[in-house]
Design a binder for these strands. Structure first.
Length: 434
RNA sequence: GGAGAGAUGGCUGAGUGGUUGAAAGCGCUCCCCUGCUAAGGGAGUAUAGGUUAACGCCUAUCGAGGGUUCGAAUCCCUCUCUCUCCGCCA
């Protein structure tokens, strides 16, 4: 959520920054300014009346104490009128407040000044590459063929169980997936100093609001109903990312400055309905409704957040470097960044069988956008309450890492070599050709 | 799912309609005193919002929301969470 004070004091600036993400957003600034003024006007009026009522009520109390019942009764009728005015004005103020809040919740974060302005993903900027595309003296197969021939993923039966977009990993495939999860968690916990958490995979509506998924993207989530109780709908959702529970761990808390930074890492499956996206690149494991991911979350003091973003990105890169997988890093342009982000870097890993790069990580600094939404604050060294900056990054997404790994390490004989760091987790140095 | 108990400021914990934003204690901060790592005295110590150039003033908040009333931490209703016991269950 944007800072209402900044909008109030500097509407033109906010309008310009929002316009880089889309004119529709910029157009809302005028409404915000108007509603904010209405709201404050109503509040001032209400509070003045309430002050009058409070002092009159005290007088009544005093009169009652002195047994001056008649005077007290006269006073009561007088105050009753004030009460009626208050409730009328109160609802006016509440209405302006609701409308204002609703608009604010639907406005994205302001992009950082350094973010390239663009209209689509085509305007994203490549920052750097690492490693090189591997050479093959045979035609590398796509992961779908490898999965079929080695029995790593049973696409047909996965679809039978839950519909298209759901995977049934089996045998070596299931073991490799598990090995990767374990490896990533250990890497971030032991080498990068993150605190591991294992969150609920279902979260309440407020968590989704907190990270900016809701209210705008409710159509992308899986809603959970308890049994046959339709009343329960709209309360719980399958997590689209571990960011939803983990970034909300300290929601509505007031942390002490010394408690920051908080560095969390968590594994979770991620559930994405992707309504309306069906049919687009859906074959195989690249775009699915459920995938595994290890997520990194940082809650930090504002002054440090861009340094922390660099670290976060480095930690995610380390995953690919340690597995010797070629990748590139993009800085997303204003139009392609997620809703709450002020700056985002994507990591795309090379998948030889696809002949393309696959997004496996998105590292974002949301600044105070999320902490304001979830009312998370910390008391700084001067005793002032401030909103910390919240960062998130995939470290990394798994289905696609799996794809890049098996496509990169496929051998002429049909087997798959396993990079050294994974071997102890898989208890094998290759997946044998069947 | 059934029965019961509870939710008050950083913590402990009073408070059943009228200067209670909230006693007391602890903790913390500052000051004073004290010739020594002790004790004592004093002051301060929530959050959000509105208003003001500022000092300040005002409003709201005692789990959440609604109601009764001139006035609610205190009475009524609904909900949430926690604890104990029972049932069911991986």
């Amino acid at each position: 959520m944007l800072d209402i004070r900044e909008i109030r004091d500097n509407p033109e600036h906010v309008r310009e920054r929002l316009a880089t993400r889309g004119e529709d957003f910029a157009a809302k600034v005028g409404d915000v300014v108007r509603l904010d003024a209405e709201r404050r006007e109503a509040i001032t009026a209400v509070e003045e009346l309430k002050a009058r009522r409070n002092s009159a009520s005290k007088e009544i109390g005093a009169l009652m104490g002195q047994k001056k019942t008649e005077e007290a009764e006269a006073k009561k009728t007088e105050v009753r009128d004030i009460g009626d005015q208050i409730s009328a004005l109160d609802s006016q103020a509440a209405q302006a407040d609701d409308e204002l809040r609703d608009i604010l919740l639907r406005l994205p974060n302001l992009p950082h000044a350094d973010v390239p302005v663009g209209d689509s993903e085509n305007d994203n900027m490549e920052i750097r590459q690492w490693g090189e595309k591997p050479n093959f003296d045979f035609e590398p197969k796509p992961h779908t063929e490898l999965c079929d021939s080695l029995g790593l993923v049973d696409f047909a039966r996965g679809a039978k169980l839950a519909g298209s977009g759901f995977l049934l990993y089996s045998g070596w495939g299931a073991r490799l997936e598990r090995a990767l999860i374990q490896y990533l968690l250990d890497l971030h916990v032991h080498n990068h100093g993150y605190t591991e958490v294992s969150p609920p995979f279902i979260v309440g509506y407020d968590c989704m609001i907190g990270v900016g998924q809701f209210p705008k993207f409710e159509d992308q989530a899986y809603m959970v109903q308890e049994g046959l109780d339709e009343e329960s709908r709209g309360k719980l959702y399958l997590v689209p990312t571990a960011e939803a529970p983990v970034a909300n761990i300290h929601r509505e808390e007031l942390l002490k400055a010394g408690e920051l930074p908080k560095n969390y890492c968590a594994y979770s499956p991620c559930f994405r309905a992707e309504a309306g996206a069906a049919g687009v690149g859906t074959r195989g494991m690249i775009r699915v409704h459920q995938f595994d991911k290890v997520e990194l979350i940082k809650i930090v003091e504002p002054e440090t957040s861009y340094d922390e973003l660099d670290k976060l990105l480095g930690h995610a890169e380390k995953v690919l470097q340690s597995l010797n997988l070629h990748y590139r890093i993009l800085q997303l342009c204003t139009a392609d960044m997620s809703f709450g982000s002020a700056t985002t870097y994507d990591i795309e890993v090379w998948a030889p069988g696809q002949g393309d790069y696959l997004e496996v990580s998105s590292c974002s600094n949301c600044e105070d956008y999320q902490s304001r939404r979830m009312n998370l604050r910390y008391k700084d060294d001067d005793g002032k309450n401030r909103h910390p900056h919240i960062l998130n990054g995939s470290g990394t997404a798994l289905a696609r890492l799996f794809v890049a790994l098996i496509e990169t390490y496929q051998q002429p004989d049909g087997s798959i070599a396993i990079p050294e760091p994974i071997q102890p987790y898989l208890r094998a140095d290759r997946i044998p050709a069947s």
